[in-house]
Simulated scan of single mutants.
Amino acid sequence: MSVAELPLAGIKILSIEQYGAGPYGTMLLADLGAEVIKIEAPSMGGDVSRATGPYFLGEQDSQFFQTFSRGKSSVALEIKTAEGRAAFEAMVREADAVANNLRGDQPAKMAITYEDLKAINPKIVCAHLSAYGRDNERASWPGYDYLMQAEAGLMSMSGEPDGPPVRCGLSIIDFHTGSQLAVALLAGILGAHRTGKGCDVDVALFDTALHQLSYPATWYLNEGVQVGRLPRGAHPSIAPSQAFKTQDGWLMLMCQTPKFWEIFCTKMGRSDLLTDPRFASIPARRANLADLTDVLDTLLSTQPTSAWIALLGGQVPVAPIYDIAQALDSTHVKAIGMTDVVDHPDAKDGRLRMLASPIKVNGKRPAGKRAPKMGEHAVAQS
C-alpha cells in the first residue's frame, strides 16, 4: 500500500517532540499516511531519545528513537532564533497542525499556541501534550509516566496484596496520552476543515492516568469503595479472572460471564464445581476466591500451559502468560504480521526488526519506514 492510499495522506503535522508520549502519538499518524516533520534543535542534540541507549545506530540514533519516530521527517531548526522562527512560520503556513509535548508553560513562551499562530494560518491546530496541563499551578512542573501511575492511584491496584505498590512494566500512560493526542489532533483538523478555524487541543499525562481509573473511580466517587490489590492480578468483582499455575508456568483465565464458567468446568471434566455452593455464582466465587484459586491451581497444575490452550482456546477466554521472547516469537504474532523489517543503514545487515503498526487499512498494515537521521530533510524557506 502506497502512502498516497493511506487515509491521512496530504495531512502535514509539525512536531516539537521528544522521548515517548508525543512521538508515540504522532507516529500513529505517520503510520496512517500523515507527513510528520520533527522540528529538532541542533543545540539540544535534537530529540533526547536519539541518545537513549543502550542500543545505538551510528550518530544521534538509537533503537529507542527508532521505536517512536519511524516514518517521520526531521528538520534541524532553532525556532528561538529570528532566522529559525521565520523558517518555522513558513512551514506553519502549509501545515495542518503543530504538536508538542513540552512542559505546560513552554508553548506560550515559545509562541506555538493557536493565539500565536492563527494570524499565519487560521486553520492551524495546536496540539499540546504536557505532564499536568497548561492552565493550573503545575503547568511548569516536569513529569513522567511513572509519577502519574503513582499519584493517580494506579500503583495501589497493581502487585500482590502483601507487597509494595507496583507500576506497569512499561510507560503505558505515555502511550495512552500519545494516543489521546492523536485523537484530539485529528478532531481539531476535522473541525478546522469544516469551519476554517483551528484551535488548541490539550492532553496531559496526569489527566490520562486518572481517567484510566475508569469504573473503580466511579465506585469510589459514589460508594466510597477503594479497589486495592488482589492476589494474582484478580478482577475486583468477577471470578475466576486471574493468573493460575500450570505444570510448567502460568495461565490467565477470564470467565467473565456464567457461560464461560460453565464451559470451563465442562471442558475440564469438573461439572461438580458448577453445583458447589462456594462457586455456584459470580458473587459466591468472588467471596470464596482463595478456595477457588486453590482448586484451580491444583487442577491446572496437572498439565503444561500448552495443553490447556489446546483444550480451552477459542472456547474460554484464556491466554498463556509469556515473557517478551515467548510473546514476540509466538506463531500467532507471525501469523498476524505484527513484526516487520525496515531498512536502516546502520543496523545489522542494514535491516532493523520492529513491531508493525497495530492499525490495518483495508486489511493491510502500513509499511514501516525507519525514523529520520537528525536534520535529514530540508528546511522550508520563508
Rank of each mutant, 00 (worst) to 15 (best):
T293D: 11
D294Y: 08
T208C: 13
H211C: 09
P54T: 05
R370T: 06
S15N: 02
T52G: 05
D323I: 11
Y144K: 03
L292H: 04
C168V: 15
N101V: 00
E262A: 14
S158V: 14
E223I: 05
S130M: 01
A310S: 15
F88G: 00
L289I: 11
V183D: 01
D145T: 05
L289A: 14
A131Y: 02
L292E: 00
G84C: 07
H193A: 15
A97F: 04
P317M: 10
E89D: 15
A82P: 06
S382F: 13
R285W: 09
M338L: 13
D349N: 14
H128F: 03
P345N: 07
E151A: 11
H128Q: 07
A380K: 08
D323S: 03
S301Q: 14
K369L: 08
E5D: 15
M354N: 03
R138V: 01
L253K: 03
D145F: 10
V379W: 01
H377M: 09
A82F: 03
Q18E: 02
A307C: 02
Q66E: 14
V295D: 06
V318M: 07
Q315C: 12
D294R: 08
S2Q: 14
E89H: 07
T302C: 06
T26N: 12
W141I: 01
S171H: 08
